[in-house]
């Protein structure tokens, strides 16, 4: 079998076998096949009734929806479970009623078009998108006249100053966006933590004693007073910390100065994109970020051992205050959270 017949293609005349053309020719539109409804009045009547039935069904759907709206009341006196059951019923009645109402019309209209409206193919003819040569010539003429009349080509002073003005005028539009926010400054490099801040349980509040942390336990903590900050959520987004107690001898030497016994505190904000790295596996001592699976090894000072993050989670040095509560020994020594350009 020839797969690359050089004689094929093109619209040229046949090159072989005398009178055979090079290509097959389009046989033209096949003869129209009549539908049942075109030839059989009974079938047509049946189709008519089907369409009408679908339209009636739509009316029923609309009624279901209206009745559902008024009959199912969302009464606040209901108990929680009953209230939600009622809501589910309301949602189903309204939604299914609406669906029947819409599908009845839609399916009915399409069925009508398919079975009862004429289905003989019609032909439209296409024309090239481009204008005819005369029209094109005229258009070019008109444009040339316009350019000539405006003097755009003849008066370069006007032309060039206009180009300059047009190039400059969007600038104020850009500048207007300057006040959409303050400049970052040192914001990203600092957190709410100060030396001496107690570690407060999130979300319950309340300080933690070192003795409260049993081996293998985890507590999610925030700096004392963060709820009174001007923007508590913004501060939390940088200051959330995970407090973990493990066997002290498992800790890397670099972690020890900031640790208290076997208790260590690390930023919970992923150094990749800022999700809370809150999944602690107490047997493997791995911390996992649920967003992109960056994995940090607590026994290696929270170094990244898997996933798209690069930097270790920053450690918050902790100690205890004179009442025995865990406090920050110092603020974070490096920015918490995702990487950014100015971060060294």
């Amino acid at each position: 079998m020839s797969t690359n017949d050089p004689d094929h293609g093109g619209d040229g005349v046949a090159l072989q076998e005398g009178d055979l053309p090079a290509r097959f020719e389009n046989p033209g539109i096949p003869e129209h096949q009549h539908r049942m409804a075109d030839t059989d009045p009974k079938a047509a009547k049946r189709a008519e009734r089907q369409v009408a039935f679908l339209f009636v069904l739509s009316m029923v759907g609309t009624l279901v929806m209206i009745v559902g709206y008024f009959a199912v009341k969302m009464d606040h006196d209901l108990g929680f479970i009953d209230y939600l059951n009622r809501l589910e019923l309301s949602n189903k009645l309204l939604g299914i009623g609406m669906a029947i109402s819409l599908l009845g019309i839609g399916v009915g209209a399409v069925h009508w078009a398919k079975t009862l409206m004429p289905d003989e193919e019609r032909i439209d003819y296409r024309h090239l998108q481009r204008g005819s040569d005369e029209v094109r010539a005229e258009a070019v003429d008109m444009l040339a006249t316009g350019v000539e009349e405006s003097g755009f080509a003849r008066r370069p002073l006007i032309r060039n100053t206009l180009i300059g003005a047009m190039a400059l005028f969007p600038l104020p539009g850009l500048i207007l966006f300057r006040d959409t926010g303050p400049l970052p400054g040192k914001y990203l490099a600092t957190t709410f933590w100060k030396a001496g801040d107690r570690l407060m349980l999130d979300p319950e509040g309340g300080p933690i004693k070192a003795s409260d942390m049993v081996l293998g336990s985890v507590a999610h903590v925030l700096p004392e007073g963060i709820e009174e900050a001007e923007h508590p959520l913004n501060e939390k987004a940088k200051a959330a910390v995970l407090l973990i107690r493990l066997e002290e001898d498992l800790l890397a030497p670099e972690s020890l100065p900031g640790a208290h016994g076997g208790i260590v505190a690390y930023s919970k904000i992923c150094t990749h994109m800022g999700c809370p790295v809150a999944l602690y596996e107490q047997r493997t001592h791995h911390l996992l970020c649920p967003c992109h699976q960056s994995t940090f090894d607590l026994t290696q000072n929270c170094k990244v051992i898997f996933g798209p993050a690069k930097r270790a989670l920053p450690q918050l040095a902790i100690t205890v205050d004179d009442e025995g509560y865990l406090v920050a020994a110092a603020p974070f020594s490096e920015p918490t959270g995702p990487s950014y350009w100015e971060r060294s």
């Binding site: 020839s2 797969t3 094929h8 072989q16 053309p21 090079a22 097959f24």
Partner: peptide, 10 residues
């Protein structure tokens, strides 16, 4: 590696 359509001659 195109496959050409059959021509009447073929």
């Amino acid at each position: 590696d195109r496959v050409a359509p059959v021509t009447p001659a073929e």
